[in-house]
Simulated assay, not measured.
Amino acid sequence: MRIHTLDLLFQNTPGLIAAYVIESGDELTLIETGPGSTLETLRAGIHGLGLDEKKVRHVLVTHVHLDHAGAAGWWALQGAQVYCHANAARHLINPSKLIASARMIYQERMDSLWGPMLPAPADKVTVLNDGDRVRVGEVEVIGWDTPGHARHHLAFIIGNVCFTGDVAGMRLPGTEYLSVTAAPPQFEPVPYVASVERLAAAGFEKLYLTHFGEVTDVSDHLLGYRQRIQDVHEAVKADHAAGADEAEIRRRYAEREHALAVSLGISEADWVRLEAGNNTAMCADGVRLCVEKGM
């Protein structure tokens, strides 16, 4: 088996969204597709490895947020089988509700950011429950139900490595700052921490983050990320209790995160990249909505 990391160069920026090509036997498997806007970059990356995209027979998406699964329908229409969480399948088959919701948020930027999300034929979508296994080439992939970032989130295990989607956060290569992926509306700290602890207990040799790349200091990363989830939740809860409104919570969240990132050696240029990949205003909203529900 060979694992290839492809940088999808989201918004012409390196190191924000990865897709992974698993080369095993005579088959190719994709883990994550990225958005429709980066489909041609993904295809070019596969060709650049000297591989034939027609051999992509399996596509696994951790969840249906557009930066992870926006191009899944295109691959299904080419004949690949798409695997996802039970609560994600309907959105891959009929993405109209997902697209409409995203368009309300991104408005005129929707198409340039995310591109098209094509419906996947129903017979090309397979649900994976916790612990289900898929044979791809000469290896087996196990799906783990890992809620917290989203209730329909899976992590994928191959041997002693884990493809984490968003459940292990965002981290730029070669840096120490861990950005909490907390997009609304399903950030939930208790199951999130439990998911991270499950990964930590497994003793993986490597993690492969969608945002972004290979992580080898697995224990430090996951234990640190568990604390970060708790920290952002407690901070927003305190802001909310003090009467801060939505705009003020966003301002305070960004200020705290920027200060922490700088203290850990993040440059201003990398901070701009982080904001493009995991916007603090969006994350502040996700945590605030959770707090407002009494969590």
Rank of each mutant, 00 (worst) to 15 (best):
H91P: 00
W114T: 01
A89S: 10
R109C: 03
P95R: 07
W114S: 02
L92E: 05
A89V: 05
M117P: 00
I105E: 12
S112W: 08
I99K: 10
V125C: 05
S96Y: 08
N94C: 09
I105A: 10
M104N: 12
Q107P: 00
Y106M: 07
H91G: 12
N94V: 08
V125N: 01
G115Q: 01
W114V: 00
S112A: 12
G115A: 04
M117Y: 00
A122D: 11
I93E: 10
M104V: 14
P121L: 07
D111N: 10
P121N: 06
D123A: 06
P95D: 07
I93G: 03
M117T: 12
M104T: 12
W114P: 00
E108C: 02
G115D: 00
E108N: 12
R103C: 04
A120W: 01
L98C: 08
A122W: 04
D123G: 04
L118G: 00
L92Y: 05
H91D: 14
A120I: 02
I99M: 10
G115P: 00
P121W: 04
A120Q: 01
L118Q: 11
S101E: 15
D123K: 09
P121G: 05
A100F: 07
A102N: 11
S112H: 09
R90G: 08
Q107H: 10
P121I: 06
Q107W: 02
H91Q: 13
M117H: 06
L113F: 13
P119A: 07
P116S: 03
M117Q: 04
L92W: 04
A120L: 03
A100D: 15
Y106R: 10
L118M: 10
A89K: 14
S101M: 11
Q107T: 12
K97H: 12
V125M: 05
H91S: 11
R103L: 06
R109S: 12
A122K: 11
D123I: 02
Q107R: 15
L92K: 04
I93A: 09
M104A: 14
Q107L: 10
I105H: 11
D123F: 04
D123H: 13
M110W: 04
L118H: 06
N94M: 04
M104G: 08
M104L: 15
I99E: 08
R103H: 13
P116K: 03
Y106T: 06
A89R: 14
L118I: 07
P95S: 10
R103M: 09
I105S: 07
V125F: 05
A100V: 04
K124N: 08
K124D: 00
K97R: 14
G115R: 01
M110T: 05
P116D: 06
H91M: 12
P95Q: 09
L98F: 08
E108H: 13
Q107I: 03
S112Q: 10
H91T: 06
K97I: 11
N94L: 06
M117L: 03
